[in-house]
């Protein structure tokens, strides 16, 4: 299989607690893969090892066949991995378009340039990315006054600047209203299809996951307990146990069986 991202036997402990225990999976080109699990399952730990924020105790992460385990976040980004944060991280003192321009300046390796005016560099290119995520109208607003959902879309624009082949998104819709969630996920799905991107995302909201993911992995107590299509995961007894102790899980999508 020609995997964009391959994770093998990834392991990480904090003290005596195995936060991530022998996790292995592949992510194919063009795939939208969701990593779900209850609180404390190890999603974020898993995620942070792929983005370079945490060093694994064991196991490997490879991008297009070459190992990236333990590389710094900025090196991993250079190799074509974009990411967004669970809690948005943007440059509050800049305008929206300048946020994107900053990423483009880094993309074009001109961070240390002292001569040109930064606000003129790659402005059109940046506006293009903002247009893509539907933020062009707000390009010259102060980033600090944006609504939360708009910040999330801005982050997505920033993540696309380096023409990544892989997007890692940590809870892309956390803290958003249901309507906004669907809109953002649809946007992501469109961009993925259009640019042949691969996406790995963690998510709390099951509606979002089942509506958009191509494939779902379930993590519980650091172990992968299921890996399959949406339908397979829904039917998985073990997953249902993990989530609701055996009760019916996905009531929002299914007609309630009683009352």
């Amino acid at each position: 299989m020609n995997a964009v991202l391959s994770v093998r036997n990834l392991t990480k402990s904090f003290g005596g607690n195995r936060a991530v225990d022998d996790v292995s999976f592949d992510l194919a080109r063009g795939e939208l893969l969701a990593l779900i699990g209850p609180n404390g399952a190890g999603k974020s730990t898993c995620f942070n090892m792929m983005t370079g924020h945490l060093k694994p105790d064991g196991g490997t992460v490879s991008l297009n066949g070459s190992p990236i385990t333990g590389l710094k976040p900025r090196r991993i980004w250079r190799l074509g991995v974009g990411r967004t944060f669970q809690i948005t991280a943007t440059y509050a003192s800049m305008t929206v378009v300048e946020n994107v321009q900053m990423a483009l300046i880094s993309h074009h390796r001109r961070v240390f340039a002292l001569r040109p005016y930064a606000h003129r560099l790659y402005r059109d290119e940046a506006l293009g990315f903002l247009d893509l995520v539907g933020m062009a109208a707000q390009a010259d607003r102060h980033c600090a006054v944006l609504a939360y959902g708009d910040l999330k879309r801005l982050e997505l624009a920033i993540a696309l600047c380096h023409a990544p082949g892989l997007l890692l998104m940590d809870e892309p819709t956390a803290g958003m209203a249901p309507g906004e969630r669907t809109a953002l996920m649809q946007l992501i799905a469109d961009i993925v299809a259009q640019r042949q991107l691969s996406v790995l995302f963690t998510e709390h909201d099951m509606d979002t996951v089942f509506a958009h993911a191509h494939r779902v992995m379930v993590l519980n107590r650091g172990r992968l307990i299921a890996n399959g299509t949406v339908a397979e995961i829904r039917a998985d007894r073990q997953v249902q146990d993990v989530y609701l102790g055996g009760g019916t899980l996905f009531s929002a999508l299914e007609p309630p069986s009683d009352a």
Partner: peptide
């Protein structure tokens, strides 16, 4: 200049700056 912007970027959000190279 880009350098000054990068300096502000590092101040505003080190996470994002590092995550964009």
């Amino acid at each position: 200049a880009p350098f000054g912007y990068a300096l502000r970027a590092a101040r505003d959000s080190k996470r994002q700056a590092e995550a964009t190279g």
